[in-house]
Design a protein around this nucleic acid. Structure first.
Lengths: 135, 135
DNA sequence: TATTGTTATACTCTATAACTATA
DNA sequence: TATAGTTATAGAGTATAACAATA
C-alpha cells in the first residue's frame, strides 16, 4: 500500500510536470482528456470529472479563454451547452499525451511480457479503464 | 498509459474518500503521513512535499488548529520550528491508513504471488519507495 | 416541478515576493 | 550574506446555495 502511494506520487509528479510544460493544470488537462472522446454537455463533464457542476463553469471558462475548447448550444435542448475541443485543444491534448508516454523511462524498459502482466494486475485491482480520464 | 491514468484516478478517489471521512484534504493527510516518520522542520516538510515553504505555513496552521500537529522550537537553531504529530494526529494518521488498506478490495483479492509481482513491476517503473508520502 | 448552466460566496492549495529573526 | 519561517497577494480548484432559462 505504501508502495502504491509512492508510485502514485511519482506518476502525479510526471503528470503535473507534463501539463505544466504546456501551461495547464492537471484538472484542465484532465478535462481536455475527457473531451478527447467527443463533445460533452457541462453536466456530463461534471459527472465524469466527479466534481460539482458549478466547478465546471470556471474550468471551461479558463480553457475557452485560451482557445482550447468551445461552448456550443445543443440543437435538441436549449438549456444544454456542449463543450467541444478546438483544433488547438486537440493539438495540446495530444502533446500532453506524448509527453506522458515518454516521461516514465521505467515503463519503456519493461519487457513486453512484464508490461502485459502489469496491465493484468492493475486491471484486477482497479477495474477496466473506460475513457481517457487521467488523474 | 491510459490504464495507468485510470488506476491512478481510482486510487486518488480512494484516497480522497478516506481522508474526507476524517475531515482532511489529501494534502493534509499527506503531510501527516510524512510526519509519521518523525518530527520535521517546516523547510524539510516543504522539500518532501515538493511545494513552496510559504505553503507549508498555512498547511501546518490548519493542522495545528485541529490539534493534529504541534510546532516546537528547535533546541539547536532558533530559526527552526519542528513540526510534531500530536497523539490525536497519530491516531488520525493511522485511521486513514486503515481506511486505505481496506478500501481497495481488488488488492486483497490478489494472490500472494500476484501481489509480489505487482510490487516488483511497480518498483521497476517508479523506483523504490522511501517514506510514507502518499499522493 | 425538475433540470441545465451560471453566479455569489467561501475555503483550501499553490506560488511569488517581501519581510523578520536568526545564523 | 544566507537561511528559516511568516505574511501579503493572487490565481486555481472545489463545494454549497440561490438564481434564470428551459424542459
Amino acid at each position: 500500500m505504501d508502495l502504491l502511494s509512492h508510485a502514485f506520487g511519482v506518476h502525479y509528479g510526471d503528470l503535473a510536470a507534463a501539463t505544466a510544460q504546456v501551461g495547464l493544470t492537471t484538472s484542465q488537462a484532465n478535462t481536455l482528456s475527457v473531451l478527447r472522446g467527443g463533445p460533452a454537455p457541462m453536466r456530463s463533464l461534471a459527472a465524469v470529472l466527479a466534481c460539482d457542476a458549478s466547478n465546471v463553469t470556471g474550468l471551461v471558462d479558463r480553457l475557452e479563454k485560451r482557445g482550447l475548447v468551445r461552448r456550443e448550444p445543443s440543437p435538441v435542448d436549449r438549456r444544454v451547452k456542449n463543450v467541444v475541443l478546438t483544433a488547438e485543444g486537440e493539438r495540446t491534448t495530444e502533446e500532453v499525451r506524448g509527453l506522458m508516454a515518454t516521461t516514465r523511462a521505467g515503463l519503456g524498459a519493461l519487457s513486453g511480457e512484464d508490461r502485459e502482466e502489469l496491465l493484468r494486475l492493475l486491471t484486477a485491482v482497479f477495474g477496466e479503464r473506460s475513457g481517457g480520464a487521467a488523474g
